Computed example of a mutant assay.
Amino acid sequence: MGQRGVTPVPAPNAENGRLRVAAERRDRMRARLLETVLALYQPGRDNAALVIDDVIRAADVSRGTFYKYFQSIEQAVDELGENLTGGMVADFRALFAAESDPAVLAIGGSAMTMLRAWHDPRWGGFTCRVDYVDYFARASALDALVRDALCAARDSGQMRFGSLDVAVDLIVGMTVEARRRLIRAPESPLGYIDEMLACTFAGLGMEPVVFARARNSAFARISEGAGSLLWWSTDLAA
C-alpha cells in the first residue's frame, strides 16, 4: 500500500533538468538586461541621467527582476564592460597566439580595436565612452597586453619612447577617438585606420619600413582568422 501524505522524490535526472532550465532562463534574462543597457548606453544619449526605470521600460521587465541581477546601473555597466573587454582579449589571443613579434602584436591589437568599431558600431559606441577608458585602467588583462607589447617593442629597438605610461595613453586615446570616428562610417574606413596606425606608431618612434612589415603581418593574421570573429562583417570586408 502507498503511504499517504508523502511527496514523491523527483528522479535525479528530472531534478537536474529543472535546474538546467532554470539556469538557462536566468542566463537569458541577464543577457537581455545587458543587451538593453548596451542599446541605451550609446553616443547621443543622455547616459549621465540613465536610471533603472529606463532599463526596465526598454527591457519590459519589473523593477524586482532588475534587482535580482544587478544592484545598480553602474554594476550592470561594469559587467557589460568586463564582458566586452574579455571577448576582445579572447579574440586577440586566438588570432595572435603564435605571434612573437612585439611590433605585430602592438599594431594588431590597435587594428583589431578599430576594425571592430567599424564592423560592430554598437560595441564601438559603448567602448569609446569616457567611463570605459577609466575601466580600461582596471582591466588588468587588456592593460597588460598593451604594456607588454609596447615594452617588448621598445626593448627590441622597434620603437623609441621614454615613458611607458605615455605610450599606453597614446594608444588608448588614439583608439578611443578612432572608434568615435569609425562608428560614424567615414568615407574610407580602411584608409582611415591605416593612416591612424601609421601616424601613431611613427609618434612612438617606429621606422616606416618596420611599420609596413608589421602592419602587413598583423592584417594578414586578422584576415586569416576573420571567419572566427562573431563581430566580423563579410559585407564590410568585401
Rank of each mutant, 00 (worst) to 15 (best):
M112I: 08
T234K: 11
T234A: 13
N83H: 12
H119A: 10
Q42I: 12
I52P: 02
P102W: 14
G44M: 09
E74V: 14
W232T: 00
S100K: 13
W231T: 04
Y67D: 06
P8I: 13
T85K: 03
R4H: 15
A48E: 10
A212T: 09
G87Y: 04
G81P: 02
D169W: 12
F161D: 01
F126Y: 12
G162V: 11
E35K: 13
A198F: 10
R215S: 02
L230Q: 10
A137R: 14
R30N: 04
S223T: 08
H119S: 07
L38W: 09
Y41A: 05
G191S: 07
L105D: 03
R57V: 13
A226I: 05
F219H: 05
R116I: 08
E79P: 05
D134K: 12
T113Y: 06
G227D: 03
P10Y: 13
A11N: 14
G86A: 10
T36V: 08
D54W: 10
P189L: 07
L229S: 00
A117D: 01
P121Y: 11
G86E: 06
R63S: 07
L145H: 03
G225S: 04
P43W: 05
E207V: 06
R122P: 02
L164R: 06
E15D: 14
A220N: 04
M206L: 04
P102G: 06
V176A: 14
G227R: 03
A152W: 11
R30F: 11
G203D: 03
L142K: 12
A103T: 02
L115G: 01
D78R: 13
A198C: 08
G205V: 04
R28W: 07
A90E: 06
L19V: 08
D131A: 13
F92V: 09
R147Y: 02
G203V: 08
M206V: 04
A97G: 13
R179W: 05
A103H: 00
A103E: 02
F96R: 01
F96Q: 00
V51A: 12
A212P: 01
R129Y: 06
A97V: 13
R147A: 01
A167W: 00
P186Q: 08
Q158R: 15
A117C: 13
E224V: 15
M114I: 11
L204P: 02
A226P: 03
T85V: 09
G2R: 15
R179K: 09
L115A: 05
A141N: 12
D134C: 10
N13V: 14
I222H: 01
E24M: 15
S228M: 07
S163P: 03
V209C: 05
F161T: 05
G17T: 15
D134V: 10
G108S: 08
M1C: 11
L145E: 06
V104S: 03
F211K: 03
V77D: 01
P43Y: 06
T175L: 08
G225L: 05
L34M: 09
L150W: 00
I52Q: 01
A11G: 11
A94T: 11
P8R: 14
A14P: 08
G125K: 06
D169F: 11
